[in-house]
């Protein structure tokens, strides 16, 4: 019986770990943001202040001039964090690369989106949601940053 109880506790612990890790899948990205950006200022200066991707790239360039640096992996994580959490996108005009990053879809899906809009611009989220490969949950979570 003691063994059974121990297994139950281990099992419950593993469940918690798995759930926590999945819920916070961008934690490593945010850690990289703190590593790269947090050397000089807090993340509060940009959190909750979305911009379009060109503007963020201007900021990245500006910060790089001021000394921001990191490993390629860190910069990649920072890139992903900003794309997924702080970037505004217009589905009918933004580049496929931006769409892929912001919607969290593959390059192929992003290309399919740009291909579709060439024929007929998207009118709203419902049309986007209907495309294969688009994650409805992510779309809902990021809808305030998506325009058409």
């Amino acid at each position: 019986m003691k063994h059974l109880l121990a297994w139950a506790i281990i099992g419950a612990t593993m469940t918690c770990i798995t759930v926590t890790a999945q819920a916070a899948s961008d934690v490593p990205d945010f850690a990289a943001v703190k590593t790269v950006c947090g050397k000089c200022h807090t993340t509060a200066v940009f959190e909750g202040k979305p911009r379009n991707w060109d503007r963020w790239n201007d900021v990245f360039a500006d910060m790089t001039q001021r000394g921001a640096s990191g490993t390629n992996e860190d910069l990649g994580r920072v890139t992903r964090y900003f794309l997924e959490n702080l970037t505004l996108v217009n589905i009918n005009t933004s580049a496929a690369e931006e769409i892929a990053g912001i919607l969290g879809v593959s390059d192929e899906v992003a290309e399919a989106i740009t291909e579709r809009r060439r024929k007929q611009p998207f009118a709203g989220l419902a049309e986007l949601r209907a495309l294969p490969g688009v994650d409805s949950a992510k779309l809902e979570q990021r809808r305030s940053r998506i325009s058409f």
């Binding site: 991707w53 963020w56 790239n57 201007d58 900021v59 990245f60 360039a61 790089t64 001039q65 921001a68 390629n72 992996e73 910069l75 990649g76 994580r77 920072v78 890139t79 992903r80 900003f82 794309l83 690369e97 892929a100 990053g101 879809v105 593959s106 390059d107 192929e108 899906v109 490969g133």
Partner: peptide, 20 residues
């Protein structure tokens, strides 16, 4: 299956970081 993960090709770094 059938979709690529950009991370497989190494980190994608924003072009702004290249402007030094």
């Amino acid at each position: 299956a059938g979709s690529s993960d950009p991370r497989d090709a190494g980190p994608h770094v924003a072009r702004g970081f290249g402007k030094v």
